[in-house]
Amino acid sequence: MAEKSLEIKDLHASVEGNEILKGLDLCMNKGEIHVILGPNGSGKSTLMNVLMGHPKYEVTSGTMEFEGEDVCPLKTFERARKGIFLSFQTPEEIPGITVENMLRTAKQAMTGQSVKILAFRKKLQKTMEQLKMDPSYAERYMNVGFSGGEKKRNEILQLLMLEPKLALLDETDSGLDVDAVQIVSHGVSAFHNEENACLIITHNTRILKQLKVDRVHVLMGGRIVEEGGAGLIEEINRRGFTHILDAAK
């Protein structure tokens, strides 16, 4: 039997007293790629923030397990060190900290070992090349003055450098031009293997071209209302979310 990566059961979560997630279930195995589709405001980013432990969100009931371990009691940095990675829908600008410095410190924190500067720098440069990022960005402050697309590419750079076990990608493809979506998609496929899992939120199917999607979940009103194989993407593209909601009723 395949090993479980992420298992969410009857998850309820609220932000500032408003319940956003209302009994969400989701299960995925190692080696799989899952996609979450859902209209704006349905709670997709909320789910990501809750999985990563944003202090503003409160889990009121339900469970979340990562590789068999309850993640609720863990702090954000502990979840990251266990191998959960979130590519942010809107990455933060961190003035003063360069991309290289941030990544080196993060890598050190993740592995608990000191990172050899030269080897690290070499890998960073290679990965930036792969993502067609100008090497000078390594010396720039994290996301400061980056264009929307550059910020997203920088998220994938972090994904490839930190090599987590579960990648949560929150609309990493939005705001990217055609070529950039290709590059990011290639990046995700380079990352993915039998030992890790990807959970991808998207409004766009182009990012999925390079990837073999195992399962699709439709999130509406804080719950998964429909699930299926890769074929579901095509169906939603054709008929929209309302149709799904009607069918689910």
Partner: peptide
Amino acid sequence: ENKLFYLMSRGLD
């Protein structure tokens, strides 16, 4: 809070 959350999501305490 959001900037700190971003840094901590990268494993920094």
